[in-house]
Every structure is written in C-alpha cells, then in structure tokens.
Simulated assay, not measured.
Amino acid sequence: MTTYAFSQLDVFATGPLSGNPLAVVHDAVGLSDEEMQRFARWTDLSETVFLLPPTRPGADYRTRIFTPDHELPFAGHPTLGSAFAWLAAHPEHTADTVGQDCGAGLVTVRRTADGVAFAAPPLVRSGPVNDGVRAELAAGLRIDPADIVAAEWVANGPGWKAVLLADADAVLAVEPGTVPGDVGVVGPYPAGSEYAYEVRAFFVKNKVTCEDPVTGSFNAGVAQWLYESGRQTGPYQARQGTALNRAGRVRVERDDDGTVWVGGAVREFVRGTVDL
C-alpha cells in the first residue's frame, strides 16, 4: 500500500458545491489499471483522474481518466480539474498554458481570470445522425420527433450525440427514459439573457439513465457544431445542472484560427492523502 496526495475539486462551479465534483490522485506511479478502476468505482463520481509523468513531447503531465465502469480517452471537467490540481501542486510552473497528455492526444489548457480553459480536441465523429438514431433519441428522451430541431454526432472521446431543441424551456422539460448511449440536449435562451444556452447531458450506468451535473466534453463538442453550422459566432456562456439543483456555468469562445476554448471556475474542497 502506498500513500498518494489527493484532491477533490468542484469544476464549472459558480459557488460552493455548485459544479461537478472530481477526484484527483497525484503522482499515481505504480498503480495498476485494476487499482485505478477499483478506486474510481469506490469514489462513485462521474470521473476520477490519476496524474502521471507525461509520455508525449510538449506535455507537462499525463492523465488517466476513469468512470466507475471504464477508462475514457478524454473528458472535459477532468481536464480542467486536472490542470488546476497540477498547477496548484507545481507553483514553479509560471507559464500561462500547460500541456495534458491523455488518450485523445495532447490537450492544451490555459489559465483564465477565474479558472482554466481547454482547447477542444478534434471530433472523432461528426455529422447528422441517421433517421434510425434520430428516432432512438426521440424515444430515449421521450419527446416528439418533431421537437428535434437538429441532431448531430459530436463525439470527442465519449460518443456524444447532440440534440438541439427549440429553447431552454424545452431542454428543462425533458424527462428521459433509457437514452441510447451518451446524449446531450441543448436549447437557446432569448437574446440578451445571461446565458446563451441551457445544456443537459445523459448517460447510462448499470442500465439506468443518469444525468451529469456539468459536462465539459459535451459542451466542447456541441460548441464546435454550433460554430461550424453558423448558429453561434461570438463567445457565449452555457448553463448546466439546473435540473439537478446545481449552478454550473461553462464559458466558450473561439479563436481566429478556429480553436474552441471551453472553461470555467474550479474550486478545491478536499486536500489530503489516500492509501492505495
């Protein structure tokens, strides 16, 4: 048994305990795949991250990201939380950016005024879903197929399918059944509102549909779709977690070169050690 430094963070938070919690095990050299998966299952958070030395040129650290059931090549709120935790543990790193080595490749994370933001990785699957998948989405979300404005693949590690509805109220009214895999729903707020979109994200765990409090990977994928389709031009803020009595806020912007940045605030709530 070895003692490791440990952090538990709240990502995309707007206040205490308002975002998506994340467990981070620092300097996790020596842990086996089975030990990492077992600990992630024990925390029972949406993701647990293990920080390791980098293997890719340009990276400052490597992440392994586990849900309670399996490992992910990339996930959004673990990327932000990992960067925040690594920077807190390495005050000698004064650069504005850090490089994260993960299953999706090298991901750049930069400091922001109140947290961090990651450069959205390329989508591994994009484009409209076919009619069969569209019907499955409507059935799983328990909505009328005619209420779907558009539906696209926005997979970037998790196999997200994005469903655009008419407005934020329609998103908040969704009461899903069993969704077909990783499904996110987005709807716009009226012009001039504090937030541009309401977002919800669903996945199946142990054959039960669960809702994620705030989801960086889905927000990254849907932002790339919104920008590429011309539905969105400038920077915007999305709200997520409302249906779960959370108050997550996701900030999105796109550089002139087309890079989409997804960011938010991160707060550390637990710091200590764990014996594994």
Rank of each mutant, 00 (worst) to 15 (best):
L17W: 12
R64P: 08
H93T: 13
A139L: 13
D27C: 04
P68T: 06
V186S: 07
G159H: 14
V270E: 00
E152T: 02
R64I: 06
L137H: 02
E228R: 15
A166F: 02
L51D: 05
V171Q: 04
D44W: 07
V260W: 02
A220S: 15
W225H: 14
F12Y: 04
P91T: 09
T242M: 03
Y189C: 03
G184N: 07
W86I: 05
T48K: 06
L45E: 10
S46E: 12
A113P: 00
V25I: 15
E136L: 14
R249N: 01
V183L: 03
C210K: 15
N219C: 11
V154G: 01
A135C: 03
T63G: 13
G184A: 04
T3E: 15
I143F: 05
V11S: 08
A135F: 03
P188S: 11
P16G: 10
Y61T: 08
G258N: 02
L22V: 11
F12T: 05
P176V: 06
G263F: 09
D114H: 14
A135S: 14
T273G: 11
G99Y: 11
R56E: 12
R251V: 13
D44H: 14
A238W: 01
N20C: 12
F84H: 15
A166Q: 07
A168D: 10
N20H: 12
D147I: 00
L31F: 05
N130R: 06
R125I: 01
D101F: 10
D169C: 00
G76D: 04
N156G: 09
